[in-house]
C-alpha cells in the first residue's frame, strides 16, 4: 500500500462526469454510451483507481526518440471483471450478446456466455471480462463516467515493476513479462491474484491483453521488419516508426497485437480496464 501515490475510490457523480471536457468542438460532446442506452447505469463503480503522476517517457514505438508527456491520470487498479460486465449488460440491454449491433462487435462477442445475462459455465465472476470489442469497452467505461486509457498512459504504467516506476533497463523486466505472456489460459484467473506494481496497479501482464483508447494510432503494420515507411506519400507526414528498444520483446508483442486489431474484434484473451482524468472539466 505504501507505494500508492494516491488511491482514489471513485464515487463520482455521473452528473459531473458526463460534462464535456472539450471546448472548441464544433458539435456538442455527447457521451458515447448515451448513443446506445439512454441513461446508462452501472451499479459497480467502486473499483479503486491508482493515481499516476505522469511524466515524460520514451515510447517503445514512436515517431522518433523524443519523449512523450503523459499527464497525471487515474487508472483502475485492475481489469474489469466478468461480474462487473454482467451488471453492465443487465442495465444496458443494447450490449447483451443477442442485441449488440454487428457494427460494434463481431460474432464472437460474449460467445461463450450461456445467455444474454448468464456468465459462461464455470466462469469466475472475478476473472477479467474478455471477448468484448473496443466499442463495448468504451461504452462500459463511459457508463461509469470513465474512459479507456490511452496507449501512452498504459505503456507509461507498464514500465513499472514492483519496486520502480521505470524498470525497462533491468534485463529481467522484459524476460519476466515474456514468461507471463507465454502462459495460456491466464485470463481465467481472478484479478489481483498477483502482487501490484510500483503504482499499486495489478495484472498489467499476467491475465490479458488490454484495449487502449487509441489502439489504432500505430501506423506500422504487424510486420516490424520494415521498420519505417520510406514512402512518405503513403502516410501524411509519415515518419520513422522504428523501435527504440529492440530487445523489449514484450513490448513488440503488445504492438503486434494492437496493430492486428480492429475495433469490432472480440478476442478470448483481450479485455480492458478504465482510466479517468484527474481534473474534471465542467461546462462553462
Amino acid at each position: 500500500m505504501k507505494h500508492f501515490g494516491f488511491i482514489a475510490a471513485v464515487w463520482m457523480s455521473i452528473g459531473l462526469m458526463s460534462c464535456s471536457n472539450q471546448e472548441n468542438n464544433p458539435v456538442e460532446e455527447k457521451s458515447f454510451a448515451d448513443h446506445f442506452s439512454g441513461t446508462v447505469q452501472n451499479t459497480r463503480v467502486n473499483t479503486a483507481m491508482a493515481y499516476i503522476p505522469g511524466g515524460e517517457y520514451k515510447p517503445f514505438y514512436g515517431s522518433d526518440t523524443s519523449l512523450v508527456k503523459v499527464e497525471p491520470f487515474l487508472l483502475d487498479e485492475r481489469p474489469v471483471t466478468n461480474g462487473e460486465y454482467l451488471d453492465f449488460v443487465k442495465s444496458n440491454p443494447a450490449w447483451q450478446k443477442s442485441n449488440v449491433k454487428r457494427i460494434f462487435a463481431d460474432t464472437a462477442y460474449l460467445h461463450n456466455w450461456s445467455s444474454d445475462t448468464t456468465l459462461p459455465e464455470g466462469a469466475n465472476a472475478d476473472a477479467p471480462i474478455c471477448n468484448i470489442s473496443w466499442f463495448a469497452a468504451k461504452a462500459y467505461a463511459e457508463s461509469i463516467g470513465k474512459r479507456l486509457p490511452t496507449l501512452d498512459e498504459w505503456e507509461f504504467v507498464a514500465m513499472a515493476d514492483a519496486t520502480s516506476p521505470n524498470a525497462r533497463s533491468k534485463s529481467e523486466y522484459s524476460d519476466r513479462i515474456i514468461d507471463l505472456y507465454l502462459q495460456k489460459n491466464r485470463q481465467f484467473n481472478p484479478v489481483k491474484h498477483s502482487p501490484p506494481n510500483y503504482w499499486g496497479v495489478y495484472n498489467m501482464f499476467d491475465l490479458i491483453w488490454e484495449w487502449t483508447d487509441d489502439f489504432n494510432s500505430i501506423l506500422t503494420t504487424g510486420d516490424s521488419r520494415s521498420g519505417q515507411y520510406e514512402d512518405k506519400s503513403l502516410f501524411c507526414a509519415g515518419g520513422a516508426t522504428s523501435a527504440t528498444d529492440i530487445l523489449n520483446y514484450a513490448a513488440f508483442m503488445r504492438f503486434a497485437l494492437r496493430t492486428s486489431l480492429k475495433a469490432d474484434f472480440t478476442v478470448a484473451n483481450l479485455g480492458f480496464r478504465c482510466a479517468r482524468d484527474t481534473v474534471v472539466h465542467l461546462n462553462k
Partner: peptide, 28 residues
Amino acid sequence: SSVLPHNIDLHAVTGPGGGAAATSSVPG
C-alpha cells in the same frame, strides 16, 4: 487458444511483406 498474433510471409510471393501485413491475425 493462441496468446499472440501471428502472420505469414511466403518468400514465393511477389508483394509487400510476402503477405505478412495482410495476414496478421489475433487469436481466434
